[in-house]
Structure formats: structure tokens, C-alpha cells
Design a protein around this nucleic acid. Structure first.
Lengths: 249, 249
DNA sequence: TTGAATTAGTGTAAAATTTACACATTGACA
DNA sequence: TGTCAATGTGTAAATTTTACACTAATTCAA
């Protein structure tokens, strides 16, 4: 293995951007560092890749240890390897993002130890993360924006029963835009991905909304055949520039 | 740095999928391995990431050493880190793809030494690459398919003057589909990205085609504002399943 | 010189999709 | 019983996409 003997003190890690959705906000799970470097700062959960472990395996492990969750959507985004990104040495990290239902997330021993906490993605800018984690988060968020147009992400992020307004808010949070209510509903319903539960919300001080769930079978058809999401921005409110996109079978 | 002392003999590399376009075929630059493992097999050009070098820097270096080219479109795609992907030890590689004009590529000393050769992407399946390079190529090709819809890749892959038919063939090669000639032209010309050079081909045994070049300025506007490419498959010939997509400002 | 071969170039109408837009409905609560 | 707050619904216009076939320009060979 002389090949390797030439090579240097360096390490691989994975860092995981764990997205959730709650109270109309897209959130990300961060941990507060208990040691240097960046003691006290917020950071993405991550850890070394073990020698007997695939990259994906490491990402799943980090996620599992922190959240206790197993069957989760997880996708590699990019690697980050600036020479000086870690003050203690050369560390190249592979970034993953995952989508989880916040209500499924129960504090694990690891998450307590690491002071894990959900933060609204929009608020993280001001927070300033450790290392180059701001950059990593940005890349993963951008990827999520792409993926939401190609895959029905509501499946991963919403509770089993949800209203169309909640679903719309999710899309708006991810796309950072406002959508037209009627057009959104038309589009979503026309995909036949939703099952009308013929139930309504309870205990809200206004007309209660119908509850829906995703149709797992249709969803899997979509995943294999391709998927098309396209809803245009409403121009009423002051949403930012953004528009449609489609990807068809 | 005790952190690092725990960690293992392992290495990072970059592997580069270098695409070119010639004679109607999308091609990839491969090298024939002169040493074990996989002696004699074709492989993607790649090398270790030096300790004082960023990932992108390493990818550019590999590309430059092989092709002598500098100002090239290059994008990170994914990392590959299966435990056993390299028979001699743990090697995690970061895959990049780049787009070059084949006519700009001149044999460099490195490319001669490494027996570099262009292969049609379609033919590589049968060839069987070293390591997990088939998988890496596939991932990069897939990425290119996505990118072609969002960025006018002709810029990077075609010579300065080209015909609309050449441009169409490029899109067909990347998307692996047939496109309708009239619709393609309508779409491309409506983007105002092309400059009609008011010249025609010479020495062809048929009606000579007009020559165009890309409008650099418009191109940069597109890059900053977003880009929209959408042309649907022609159903005449037996093209495979594929259809449109758009991404707008 | 003529015509055969080959690729370039061109327009339109129908279908599908996207967009903009406003008001009646429901239930809780005071 | 009326006020509050969010739900739910339809249509017409504009835009985009799609399907489709013939004439034009040039070379080459007879």
C-alpha cells in the first residue's frame, strides 16, 4: 500500500442538513458545539466516516443517532474540501440532506447531549454556523428547491394527515415564493396523489379545512415514472422572483 | 491534532468525466491504465487531492494536465465512497464533469503517457471501466442531462461556428432522444442566444447550412437571470421516452 | 445540362397548459 | 346573531407546446 503511505493526515466526514417543516416554517436541525473549534456555535450534525462504512452509511448513522429515525429520505448533495475549512487539519466533508417529519423526531440521548434544536432556515443566516456550514446549508437548501419540483416532498415532511393550505405553505417555504391558491390546488389535485380523507380539522376558529393524505401507491408510480410539479407564483403579495418548472416522464 | 491520529489510512481523489462532442456523438475522454489495479482497462482520469489543494483545484489540475485546457466548464457531481471501491485501500473520490471542445484538445505529454482517447459515451457500456467508473460516468451523464435544460451547454461543447443541425444533434446526443427540427429551431432562435453569421458551410454535397455563433453577452445574461430550454421529442423516429422541462428566471 | 441525391429551411393550426382573478361558505366565538 | 378568519371554488385569456410536409440549395454523376 505504498500508494497510501505518501498521503497525509486528513479525514472524511459527513455533515447532514436535516430539514423539517413546522408552523409554516422550513426548519433545520442544528447542534450546539460543546468543544473547540467553534465551541458554543451552532453547527450541522456530522461525524467521521468510519473505515468500514460507506458514505451513505455514515450519513444514515449520524441521522439515526441524532433523531432515532431510520426510514428517511436522504440524499448526497456535494463535497466540501477547502484546504482550511477545518482549523485542526484537512477535513473533506460530504454533505447530505434529509427530510423528516418533525413530529416523528424524539429527543435521543445523542440529541440531548448535543443540544440539538430546530431552527427556521430563514433565521440561520443571522446565526452564523460553525466551519463552512453556512455554505453547506445553502447548497442543500438549493438542492431541495430543485428536488421539490421533481419529487413530491410533502410525503417526507408533512404529518400523515394535512390540509391543502399546509401543503401549499410547505411549497412556499421551500421555494421562497407565494403561490396562487386556486392554481396550486388545481395542480396538486390533478396529480391524483392525494386522498381526500373526508374529514375536517377540529378546533380551529374558522371554517375547518379538509384533511388529505398522500397516496403511497401513486407516489411510487411517480417516483419510477417521473414527476411534474409546476405552480406559478401569485403576484398579489410581494413574493420574490420565481417561476415554474416541469419535469415529465 | 489527536482527532486525526485516530483516523485511518485512506485517501481522497478526484475523477473527471470530460465530455466532448464530435461527429454527432457525445464523447468522453478515457485513459488506459498502465498499472494495477485494472492494468490495461479504461478509466476516468483522476488523481489524489494534494494536501494544499482544494477539491476544485485538484479537478482543474487533472484536467489541465491531461488536456492542457484551462478555461473550461467544470462542475462537481457527487462523491463515491463505497468501502471496497478501490482494491488497495479506502479511497473516496469526488467526481467532476467538464465540457470541452474536442478541437481545442491537443495531446499533452500526460495524455500521451496515459494513452488518453475519446470514446463515444454510448460505447462505453460495453467497454467496462475500471473501479466503479461506470457508475461515476453514469452519474455525470445524468447530471449533464439535467444541466442541458438549465444552461446552454452548446457554448462549451461546440466550435465557435456551427449549424443549427449540429446544435440539435448535440442536444439529441445528450438527451438521448430525437427532437423535432422545426420546433427545435423555433425554440432556440427565440432565445436570441445565437448570432447569424450570414455565412454558409462550404464543400458539402447538399444545400449548405447557415453558420451561427453564440452571443456571449446574452449567454451571461442567461446565466445570471436563469435559463429555459424546452424542446419536445419528435415522434417520427423511434426515440425513447423523454420529454420537456423548463426553468425560468 | 439535367436530374438524382441529400440536407437545409420554413408556417400553421390544434391542443394543452398556465395564468389572473373575487366572492360565497363554514364554523368558532363573543 | 353577527363578526372574524380561513376555506373552497370556476372561467376566460394568454401562452406554450405539439404535430406535421413540402420547397430550396448545392453537389455529383450520367
Amino acid at each position: 500500500m505504498t500508494l497510501f503511505d505518501n498521503f497525509f493526515k486528513s479525514a472524511f466526514t459527513v455533515d447532514n442538513v436535516i430539514f423539517g417543516f413546522d408552523e409554516g416554517d422550513l426548519k433545520v436541525l442544528l447542534i450546539q458545539r460543546g468543544e473547540d473549534p467553534f465551541m458554543g456555535k451552532w453547527a450541522l450534525p456530522g461525524y467521521f466516516v468510519y473505515p468500514d462504512e460507506d458514505l451513505d452509511g455514515a450519513a444514515y448513522r449520524v441521522l439515526r443517532e441524532l433523531t432515532g429515525l431510520n426510514n428517511v429520505y436522504l440524499e448526497q448533495v456535494n463535497s466540501f474540501g477547502k484546504v482550511d475549512r477545518h482549523p485542526f487539519g484537512r477535513v473533506i466533508t460530504v454533505a447530505y440532506y434529509s427530510l423528516i417529519k418533525i413530529e416523528d423526531y424524539k429527543l435521543s440521548p445523542a440529541s440531548i447531549a448535543q443540544k440539538a434544536k430546530w431552527h427556521a432556515v430563514a433565521d440561520v443566516k443571522e446565526l452564523g454556523l460553525a466551519f463552512d456550514h453556512d455554505e453547506i446549508l445553502k447548497a442543500c437548501f438549493q438542492r431541495l428547491k430543485l428536488v421539490v419540483r421533481i419529487r413530491p416532498v410533502g410525503f417526507e415532511l408533512l404529518p400523515p394527515r394535512f390540509t391543502l393550505t399546509q401543503l401549499q405553505h410547505l411549497y412556499e417555504a421551500i421555494l421562497e415564493t407565494d403561490l396562487d391558491k386556486r392554481n396550486f390546488r388545481k395542480k396538486i389535485l390533478s396529480m391524483n396523489l392525494l386522498v381526500d380523507l373526508e374529514q375536517t380539522q377540529e378546533g380551529v376558529a374558522h371554517r375547518p379545512a379538509r384533511l388529505y393524505q398522500f397516496d403511497k401507491q401513486k407516489y411510487h408510480e411517480f417516483l419510477s415514472e417521473g414527476f411534474n410539479f409546476e405552480v406559478k407564483e401569485s403576484k398579489k403579495k410581494g413574493g420574490n422572483q420565481q417561476s415554474g418548472l416541469s419535469a415529465k416522464p
